[in-house]
Design a protein around this nucleic acid. Structure first.
Lengths: 225, 225
DNA sequence: GGCTCAGTTCAGCGCAGTCTCAGCGTCTCC
DNA sequence: GGAGACGCTGAGACTGCGCTGAACTGAGCC
């Protein structure tokens, strides 16, 4: 679990980071708001401990801008002020929790754990056509209830065909999307992989999801074949 | 938004409920632990404000039993004690937040709003997949009833895989989340640790919770393997 | 100092996955 | 019907991914 600590008091920041590492987290530290913002957008943290009083860019501002940028990593705010309304502001801006300095390290860890527990990673939707289900997140393919094991390449080809379900896809399109743009091998490779796929997802089920359109390419039937 | 207020001091309970109604919530009040438990299991509240000191059944006990019963409604604990460890206990038991009495009503409402905004149903403190149980708070791992001893690194890797259960996690993702950002050692380290984990949590039980998805990464099976 | 143990590096092995190629079947057009 | 283009498939070669055992480092402890 990777945590970013944003705190301008260097001694405190180091102490917190060290403690978190001892608790089994991976902790990074930055001391300024603008740097924090860059890091947060750049790197996929599991949680962020964010001081409000920061040089360059306040914690509020970091929070606001990162939420605007579409980063929804859980955030715990740290504040020296105990003004109630400040805290309410932070929560309304999208902070998930806050601690008032001086805070207890035990509480910080407990709150972090509670936050991480909550965080359900959102999954991209799975693609369904007929009785064929392709889930890019889990890399699973299920046909008529039984799971089918595909290799990476096979999966990539099927995924692309699914995305273009019901429309004809040329072999060069498949090559460009699944293989490298500058692939200069035998274009026949597409036929080979379509063959593999048919053997795995069509033949055992007596169906034909992948149609060949002679002279044009392939079409994955939207009704599953 | 329907909120249950569980508080034995009748004056305080009434004041809170009245304030919540004024803020647009629908608020119910009960004064005893056992009654709270019945109501909570019976009625689908959006949030619960739960005092720790209660007659008949303590707030802790109410929380524990309702979580055991599968009720994951967000809970804010109220406590007169400010002992850190009590708070940490409550959070690990599955409370989502807490307030120390005397608390500010403004803060209570802000926290309630934050909780409701979060909306996502709370997860159990322990992570369970099949017969594999991982508890981040106690750092314990149990498989099929027998405890398994893991080192810190092993635990961190397993914890991350559990969080992403059923989805494929690339080796670089594991590196980024479990190791430090600036780790520039041999990425093979991930394979090594997956190997350790398999020897400890899979081999002795004749199972395979951690699948390798060639060319993509690893997937921890949601059904335990 | 010597021991243990966690964490890490490294090199070698085996094989799954990928790709090439050639031969054969099938469709289309004259 | 025949020729040629197009598509399919089986055999086999190659590559590099993933796994593992062994060795090294460094911290903690007696």
């Amino acid at each position: 679990m990777r945590v970013l600590v944003v705190e301008d008091e260097r001694a405190l920041a180091a102490a917190v980071a060290q403690g978190l590492v001892a608790e089994g987290f991976a902790a990074d530290v930055v001391h300024e708001g603008d740097e924090a913002l860059l890091r947060v957008i750049d790197t996929q943290y599991d949680a962020i401990v964010l001081d409000i009083m920061l040089p360059k860019l306040s914690g509020y501002e970091v929070l606001r801008q990162m939420r605007t940028a579409g980063v929804w990593t859980p955030v715990i705010m740290l504040t020296a002020k105990d003004g109630e309304y400040d805290v309410a502001d932070a929560l309304d801006l999208g902070a998930d929790d806050y601690l008032i300095k001086p805070f207890s390290f035990v509480v910080l860890v407990a709150r972090l754990r509670a936050l991480l527990r909550r965080g359900a990673p959102e999954r991209p939707a799975q693609m369904v056509t007929g009785d064929l289900v392709v889930d890019p997140a889990t890399r699973r393919v299920v046909r008529g209830g039984t799971e089918v094991a595909l290799t990476a390449r096979e999966f990539a080809v099927l995924e692309y065909l699914m995305r273009c379900a019901d429309t004809v896809v040329s072999k060069t399109e498949v090559l460009q999307h699944v293989w490298d743009e500058y692939y200069d091998g035998d274009p026949n490779i597409v036929e080979v992989y379509v063959g593999y796929l048919r053997r795995k997802i069509d033949a055992p089920f007596g169906k034909a999801a992948i149609e060949t359109v002679r002279g044009a390419g392939y079409r994955l039937r939207g009704d599953g074949g």
